[in-house]
Computed example of a mutant assay.
Amino acid sequence: MEIPSSTIHERLNNRRFSVANNTQGLSGAGTVFHYQVEGEAISGTYQGGRIRIGQQVGRVTGAHTIELLFQCVTTENELLAGWSRGTVGVDDAGHTTLSFVWGWLSGATGGGESRYVEIAE
C-alpha cells in the first residue's frame, strides 16, 4: 500500500518501531526504534536486545524513501556505525512499515536487509 509523500512526517514522527525481520543485523525482538521528523530531517534513537544505545540521523529522499546514518554501542561494548536506505509503507492493518537495505561503515563488515513495523499504541 502506498502513502502520499506528505505523510512521511505523520508516519514516522514520534512513533516507535520494532523489528519484524533482521537476520543479518544486531537489532532484534527487544530493540525499539523511536523517530523524530523535522521538515525533511530525521533523527532517532534505538536500544534494547544487543543494543545498549543507538542514534540515527537522516533525511527524506523521496515520496516514500529515506536514508539514515546510524551508530550504536552494543551490550558487548562494541562501537559500530552504518548507513541505510529505506522505504516507508503501510501494512494491511494500517501500521507503518519500514524496509531497509543497509551496510556497516565502521566496527563491522557486511550488511543486509531489515524490516520494521510500528508498535501499536
Rank of each mutant, 00 (worst) to 15 (best):
R52M: 04
T74I: 00
N21T: 05
T87L: 09
L68G: 06
T65W: 02
H64Y: 10
R115M: 10
G25L: 02
I119H: 04
S84H: 04
T96A: 12
D92K: 07
N14T: 11
V32Y: 01
G44T: 05
V117M: 09
G48N: 08
R85P: 02
E38L: 14
G107V: 01
E10V: 07
R16H: 10
V73I: 15
E67W: 05
E10K: 15
S6E: 11
H9L: 14
H34S: 15
V90G: 01
A120R: 15
N21R: 11
T87W: 07
R50K: 13
Y35L: 06
N22E: 09
N22V: 04
D91L: 00
G58A: 08
A20P: 00
G54Y: 00
T75S: 05
I66D: 04
T87G: 06
E67R: 12
L79T: 11
T45Q: 11
R85N: 09
H9E: 13
Q55A: 14
V37A: 08
G107R: 04
Y46L: 12
A120L: 14
T23K: 14
L68D: 00
R85G: 08
E121C: 09
G54E: 00
N13A: 12
L26E: 01
P4D: 13
R85Q: 13
E2Q: 12
G44E: 05
L26M: 07
I8N: 03
S27Y: 05
T109I: 09
L69Y: 06
F70K: 09
G82Y: 01
G111H: 02
F70P: 01
V32S: 07
T65P: 01
E121S: 15
R50S: 07
W104C: 08
E118F: 06
S114K: 07
I119L: 13
L98R: 01
V90Y: 04
Y46K: 01
T23F: 12
L98P: 07
G39S: 08
L79C: 11
P4R: 12
F100S: 00
S43G: 13
I51L: 02
V101S: 09
E113P: 00
V19S: 02
R16M: 08
H64C: 14
V19M: 04
G86I: 00
H34M: 05
P4S: 11
L79K: 10
E121H: 12
R15T: 06
A29N: 06
N13M: 08
S6G: 15
S6Q: 08
N22I: 06
S18P: 05
S84G: 11
V90A: 09
R52I: 01
